[in-house]
Design a binder for these strands. Structure first.
Lengths: 104, 104
DNA sequence: ACGACTCATAAGTCCGTGCTTATGTATGTG
DNA sequence: CACATACATAAGCACGGACTTATGAGTCGT
């Protein structure tokens, strides 16, 4: 997926909230619905969009669908965003330090 | 600015194209319009949105308005996105390679 | 002062999209 | 088998937002 679709997908606050609830845990659609003042079809549609963008993955188990974040789907976003950081130098310096430590 | 507004702002392809043309250079609104099949007011409105989100800054010079990327405006996005990366190890490996090259 | 130029604002139109209710499909349970 | 449960799909509506044309507000040259 390209960053064009990903940005469009993430522009919706409900979808970002879904991702937030999925970060760490793996949840079913019904579990996810807790705390959302939204109909079941609406949630299902959002899930379909997130899945289509490759941001979450599905694990079927009988009639239950378990969803989890697919962090690799965010890669295009990282790539796009890398262009707009002007604080690389200091970051690279701290990374150098970090890597030096890790090498020991 | 919070990530909610930033995602909404970046969901528009024209605005992302504006940012891309501004990455590096500083351009006037008229310069920016080159290559866009869009009316002047439309571009002006996009610029206002980008400015409102803190993603670009303006430098007035007579009747000309010079625009440039304000990379610090992307900070909330970096913060939000940091939550969704689980592939740090491989990334760090490529960074090691990159830094080794830079050291030479 | 007047006209040309750069950019912003106003007002209105149109399309995409997120929501709803209704229904479909598949998997359980008695 | 009949019914409940979990989720997906269909269809229609309503609102937001990106675009247009028209106009306004400053700034420069002659």
């Amino acid at each position: 997926m390209n960053e064009a679709e990903i940005f469009k997908v993430l522009a919706d606050p409900t979808r970002r909230a879904i991702l937030e609830r999925l970060s760490g845990d793996e949840l079913t659609a019904t579990d996810l619905r807790e705390g959302f003042a939204i109909s079941q079809p609406a949630l299902s549609q959002h899930i379909a969009v997130l899945k289509g963008a490759g941001l979450i993955s599905e694990r079927r188990e009988g009639r239950f669908a378990h969803y989890r974040v697919d962090a690799s789907g965010f890669a295009p976003l990282h790539g796009w965003l890398a262009r707009y950081r002007d604080f690389w130098p200091s970051r690279i310096d701290s990374l150098k330090d970090l890597l030096r430590e890790m090498d020991q």
